[in-house]
Amino acid sequence: MTIAREKPPSIILQGGRHAGIRRWLWAVALLVFVMVVVGGATRLTGSGLSITEWKPITGALPPLSAEAWASEFAKYRESPQYRLLNQGMDLGEFQFIYWWEWGHRQLGRFIGLVYLAGFLVVAARRLLPWRQTLILFGMGLLLGLQGAIGWIMVASGLEPGMIAVAPVKLTLHLTFAGLFFASIVAFATWLTPPRRIEPSKARGMAWLLLALLFGQIALGGLVAGSRAGFTYNTWPLMDGALVPDAQTLFVRPSFWENFVDNAALVQFNHRLGAYLLLALALWHAVSLRRAAPGSGGAKRATVIAGLTLAQGLLGIVTLLLVVPLWAGLAHQALGFLVLAMGVVHVTRTQGGARA
Rank of each mutant, 00 (worst) to 15 (best):
P244E: 08
F259N: 04
K201Q: 10
E93M: 06
A241R: 13
L321T: 14
T231V: 14
W24V: 11
Y76T: 06
V344F: 14
G144H: 05
T175V: 13
L120H: 04
K75C: 02
G178E: 10
N233A: 12
G103K: 06
L272Q: 12
S226R: 08
L325K: 07
L237I: 02
I316E: 07
Q106M: 13
V165D: 07
L329F: 08
I11R: 13
V344Y: 11
L49K: 05
A27K: 00
R131V: 13
P324Y: 12
H284K: 06
S287A: 07
L85A: 15
V168D: 07
P194G: 11
A188M: 03
A164T: 12
N269V: 06
V38K: 03
L134G: 15
L277N: 04
K169E: 11
H345G: 01
P253R: 06
F119N: 06
A228F: 04
T42W: 04
A29H: 00
K75T: 02
S10T: 09
A274L: 10
G342C: 08
L337T: 13
A164F: 12
F119E: 08
V32E: 09
I197E: 15
L116E: 09
G138F: 15
A330Q: 03
V114K: 03
W26E: 06
V317E: 09
F181V: 01
W102H: 10
F336E: 02
V154P: 03
A29K: 00
R348D: 12
P63N: 10
G140D: 05
G220F: 00
W151Q: 09
G315Y: 04
Q267C: 09
S226W: 01
R290E: 04
P244F: 10
L277R: 03
A333S: 07
G138S: 14
V303I: 14
T42F: 05
G40S: 08
F230S: 11
I12V: 15
F73W: 03
L265S: 03
A74V: 05
V323D: 04
G138P: 05
G328N: 09
F336Q: 12
A202W: 01
A188D: 04
K299A: 04
R109P: 03
N262R: 08
H18K: 10
